[in-house]
Structure formats: structure tokens, C-alpha cells
Nucleic acid binder design. Sequence first.
RNA 1: GCGCCCGUAGCUCAGUUGGAUAGAGCAACGGCCUUCUAAGCCGUGGGUCAGGGGUUCGAAUCCUCUCGGGCGUGCCA
Length: 577
Amino acid sequence: MSVKSLLENAVRRAMDSAGIPADCSPAVTRSNRPEFGDFQANGAMAAAKQLKTNPRALAGAIVEQLQQQLQGQVDKLELAGPGFINITLSAAFIGDQLAAKPTPDSRPAETVVVDYSAPNLAKQMHVGHLRSTIIGDAIARVLTHLGDTVIRQNHVGDWGTQFGMLIAELEEQLSSGEQAELALADLEQFYQAAKLHFDADPAFADKARAYVVKLQSGDSHCRALWQQFIAISIAHNVSLYRQLGVLLTEHDTMAESAYNDQLADVVATLMKSGIAVEDDGAKVVFIDELADKNGNPSPMIIEKRGGGYLYATTDLAAARYRAQVLRADRALYFIDARQSLHMKQVFATARRAEFVPATMQLQHLAFGTMMGADGKPFKTRSGGTVKLADLLNEAIERATVLVAEKNRDSDISADELAEIARKVGIGAVKYADLSKTRTNDYIFDWDSMLSFEGNTAPYLQYAYTRIVSIFRRADIELNSFAAAIAVELPQERALALHLLGFEDLLAQVAKECYPHLLCNYLYELASLFMSFYEAAPMLKEGVAPAVKASRLALAKRSADTLALGLELLGIETMQRM
RNA sequence: GCGCCCGUAGCUCAGUUGGAUAGAGCAACGGCCUUCUAAGCCGUGGGUCAGGGGUUCGAAUCCUCUCGGGCGUGCCA
């Protein structure tokens, strides 16, 4: 159990003894100033308000109980201000807690569907897909680490009207002797070519329209062309996922088209139960929960006038599949914030139709848009969308220059430098995204993410290599090292207490799906380690053996936490840089 | 019109179910390398938390209004 949970339990028991109702939180947090101890419990004040009694007296009663409960674990319990309880732990207790293996608080394992990335297969992946892909992957990793059964679902777009045009184009290029892989080597170019063709040649445009219909009615020729197109497009994406260090594979693909044969049933079910009604020729669900202030319910069309389904229909089928076939306890949707209304509509309808049980959680984890330095959506100089592949290549190129500069006099081989640059470049791009609050727009800026200073991936990677370097120099095996920890210096204490909060932090990330919390934690950890490193020599002359061992143990614990934290973010570490 | 989100230092961003004197980084300025990687550390300056009103022991945080910005809003996804 974490130190914080332990304190929360103790304070809660003390609150029981003081006659405080069970719904009052102990409100234990880390103290924000050293003079207020290590932790503070602020729950007495809120409880006093509810009970209409004197907060300081109530806090005093809690402190009295706590004195007995925390015997030996704390050095000092202080009553301050209107009813703050300041807790200073004993150094021995901190050392013992650090020596104990970090065990997560018991948390019931769940089956969690994580829906992320979801590019449209008609085109090459671009920066617009980056946030969903990176953030979703990080959360999937965290949940897996905490013991959940994670089912990744890459809900790729493979069924729009544009596919008629694309397969008609593909057919034509194949008939002129082109190989499919070559024709589709650059999807963006292929799309442009098809579009030009479509606009310039009426006969081709007619064929394209006809092919949409044929494809959707199961024509085998069109279907074969389409499958060829889809397979190559997915292969492109998977290779990008590899380069990005994202765990998605082709097996996680669950395309829109996979639900085609269920759409009629979704609509029929909703019509039959009266949840959907015919309106102006279309089949529509009117959602009262989302009504505006004038009482107009929010409409969601699930079948167009004259037939044809929409993405709402597909999303309803997917929600049902995730509940009834995948048996998920929780489904997470990492989708752009602009689709908030749509997600609310789908969730409300899926629940009302009992496609998903009331016990299953549906969460839309929205994120903002990636902006350029000018505060407008991130584009190339000529105003086009930035391809993901180009972005990653540029990141590595930029990192290569920087890494080479820093290692002008080092004996690291060219191959290893290239590997370092790759990890630094990719890590920088991912971290820049992960470290901003998910729900806000964020500004993409090469210089700040690769500046190697401040809250960046390179800083964290550097902190890690610095620790590895200590052990290498001392010729001690990092992985197997163990020693008792005795915290003495303030820098040791601060680092130790921060390390003890890791499990709590992960639990919070799993619950709220905010990777930036983990980033902030790791950045603070690295900063605290750097300060500790300056203040607490390990290998230098005159350091007593027990002190040296203790500090090395703290360093090891820091390295392990950094490495694990970065891994959960999907960011690679290295032995030196 | 209606709905959702946002507004914190010059810039980029944190800020926990309301907690004590609102924090980092960059940029600026000043220190620290014959001693574990200076991609670092220590320090200084910098704030009408968009604005008004309210709730209370206490508000960046909750309520309300105003201003400013973004996005969405019946047959694309």
C-alpha cells in the first residue's frame, strides 16, 4: 500500500473516532512547503463545516487519535492554521517504505477497450492522427501495466465514398502494368492523382460512382481491388506505428467496414423500440438529455433519406460489439474534441437501447488540436497537411544534428549515435504531445521540444543515462543492486518522498487518462534527482560506505522509476547519450 | 441562435474532490566545472489568475453575469 493510502486510512480511522461521517474525505496531500511537513491532512476543515463545529478543535481530536496510530512512523504531527494537520514522517519509516517492493493498491482488473489512432485509409497518416495515436498508446500501456486486459481497437476508415474513386484509379494503373505496391507507395500522391482524374474525366467519374455502389453491394471485382488497397494502406500505417514505437499492429485493426452487416439491425432495433423515428425521410434518434435550453432534443441521424448509414450507425454497432462480444468493462475513445457532441449522442443512445449495460463505462477522452507556432492549425509552409512520416523524419534529422554536436569529442560509434538520435527525436515529438494537458490545443514547436532543457524527453533520457553512468563508473550492476536507504539530506528526503508517490500517480493516470500527469511526475523526479546528484556525492572520496550504498539505492530506484515511466509513455531510453 | 471548450509571468505550460505566501521551463540577469556526463545545478527579477458580482474561515478552482478566442450544431467522417 502506498504511503499516501496508508495515511489516508489512518486519518480516516481517526476521523471515525472523532465522530466524523464516513463521506468526509481525509484530504491527504503532499505538503506544498517544507515547514508544513511531508504530508498534510485537510479534511478536518471541510468536515467541521458540514458539522457546523470548530475546525481547529475537530482537527485537534483527529491529531490525538493519529498520535497513537502512527506511532513510530511519524516524527511530528502538527496542528496549524484553521485546522491543517501537518505530518512529518520519520526517516526510518521512509527508508523502510522505499526498501519494500512497490505493490500497487489492490485494484480490480478490468477488460478495457482502447479505441485510438483510427486514421482514414484513403490517405497517408498525417499529424492530425498523432495525438490520438500517442496518447491512446500511452494509456493502453499504463492499463496493461496495472493488470487490466487491454483490447486495442483501431477503428480505421475504410468505407467512404472516396473509395470508389480510389479503386477505379487503382484498376486503371494496374491495367497499365503497374504493381499495386508501387502505385500505392505514396498514398498522398495516389489520392491526388485519382482526384485529378475524377475532376478531369467525366467517364472516369461515372465509373468511380458506379464502383462505390458495386463495392457496397459486394461486387467481387471491386471488392478485390478494395482489399488490395486496404491491405497496403494498413501496412503503411503499421510501419509508421513501429517507427513511432506504438504497439498497434494489423491485428488491432477493426475497421468501419467490419460493422457493415450489423448496421441494418442496429437501425431496425432502434426503430422497433421507438428510440429512433422517421423524420423528413431519415431515421433519427432524438436525444432529450442533450436538449438545449428551449427543450429541443438533439438529433442524430442513423439512416439517410433513401437509405445509407452514417458513422453514428457504425459507432453504435461498435459500442454494442465492445459490450456484447468483447465483454468490456470499460471502453475508452481517444477522439478529437470536435466530436464531443457526436460521442455524447452515441453514448446516450447506446445506453438507452441497452447496447451497453449500465455497469460498463464509456469514456470519450477528447483532445485538442495541434497548432503551429502562429497559433493556427499546424500546416506545411505551403499550407498542406504535414505527413506523419515527414514529421518523424524531420525529428530524427534535427536530433541527429544536436546529438552529433554534443558528442563531438566522444568515442561513441556512428551507429550508436544514430540510434541515440532516433530515440531522442521520436521521444521529443511524443513527449511534447503527451506532456500537455490532453483536452487543450497545443502548440507544436521544434525548438522547444528539442531544446534539451526543461520539461522535455531528452532531459528525462539524460537523467536516466546519468544514473546508468554512475553505476557503470563504479562497476556495479544496476539491475541487481540493493541496499538499505537512510534519508538524511533534504534532497534525499524530497527525492525519496516523490518516489513513494509513483503508484498513486499511475492509478490516477489510469483513472483519468491524462498522460501529462505522468510526464509532470517524471520531470519532477528527474529534477529532484539532479538536485540530489549535486548535493549527495556517491562515488567521491570520503563518502562512508553505508551512505554511499544508501545513495546508490536511491539512485537505482530513481533510474528504475524513470525507465518504467518512460516506457509507459512509449519513450525509449538508452545507456548513454 | 443554441451547445461544448478555453482565457494563469514577455513566450510555452502546470496548478489534486476549494487549502496556507499561485509554480516550472524558455527568454533576461548573476553565480558554480583539475572532483560521479555543465544536455546539469544554485540564485535574482517578472502576476489585476480576462473582468464584475456571489458562496465561505479560505476561490485560479464552485455559482452567476460580461468581454475575448476556438470548435461544433439534420442526411461527410
